[in-house]
């Protein structure tokens, strides 16, 4: 009778038989519909396995790969003091963005751990405060670049699905660089707002305050006077050529 009851019980959740289920991450639970071990059929409630969370390898080849790149050449120097994370401008906004930990994961080749941070690993804004303060001259800012490249290489699918490049913002950004040769954050912000139809917010409370402040300290006028770098025409041509080539290659690869 009791057996029948069990059989009729619907399997609702992954690993629902596990006591203290909340302590175990979904991806660490393995359930097979039909499982035979050493000739014994263990299908049913005995087919639930918890994968060990223990790290069982330091993969040094990964470290060697990073070390060969220009941005990551100083990875061997890091002694994990945390000065980079402490000085980081991004960490206060995204606590999961931790340059110190990312460097450590790269040192030990811990891709399993690194994979959990694909969504935030790209957040470095390149302010270089960490590189300026690093006592060992590791250059963590550029290490984050190396990290981005690594993630792109090892987890192309996740990058594709988890990170979506905002094509509109990219277009605005490119236009500004090609058109002016300079990046102006106020202008970037305004055009991005305009293009995404958030014009109302442009004259919101915060923006009004910012405009007033900028008018007072003179920054507003320097924006208006934003000129082009000397002889920008030829540089612009080079960039356009490069982008064109890049497009051709990409299209070629995609078989377009």
């Amino acid at each position: 009778m009791a057996l029948e009851k069990h059989e009729s019980r619907p399997v609702a959740e992954k690993g629902e038989h596990i006591i203290a289920r909340h302590l175990i991450e979904d991806e660490n639970i393995k359930e097979e519909k039909n499982l035979v071990i050493d000739g014994v059929d263990v299908s049913g409630r005995w087919n639930t396995f918890i994968i060990s969370r223990v790290d069982s390898e330091f993969d040094r080849s990964f470290f060697e790969e990073i070390k060969k790149t220009v941005a990551g050449s100083r990875i061997n120097r890091c002694w994990q003091c945390g000065m980079c994370t402490a000085s980081c401008t991004v960490t206060p906004l995204y606590r999961r963005f931790n340059p110190r930990a990312f460097i450590y994961m790269m040192q030990l080749g811990n891709l399993k751990e690194l994979k959990k941070y694909i969504d935030v690993a790209w957040r470095c804004v390149g302010c270089y405060k960490c590189s300026q303060r690093c006592p060992k001259q590791v250059n963590p800012a550029e290490m984050m670049e190396a990290l981005a490249l690594v993630i792109k290489k090892y987890f192309p699918e996740e990058v594709e699905t988890k990170l979506k490049l905002d094509e509109e913002v990219k277009k605005i950004y490119e236009d500004m660089i090609i058109g002016h040769g300079r990046l102006d954050l106020a202008k970037l912000h305004t055009s991005a707002m305009q293009k995404s139809g958030r014009t109302k917010e442009l004259l919101g409370k915060i923006e009004r305050g910012a405009i007033l402040k900028m008018a007072k300290d003179g920054r507003a006028f320097s924006i208006l006077k934003l000129g082009k770098p000397h002889n920008w025409g030829s540089s612009r041509k080079a960039i356009e050529n490069y982008l064109h080539k890049l497009n051709t290659i990409e299209n070629g690869e995609a078989g377009v």
Binding site: V54, S56, E57, Q80, R100, A101, Y104, L108, N110
Partner: peptide
């Protein structure tokens, strides 16, 4: 225990 990543390890 890797005290920087808060994870146990068993490395040969």
């Amino acid at each position: 225990e890797d005290t920087l990543l808060r994870g146990p390890f068993e490395i040969p």
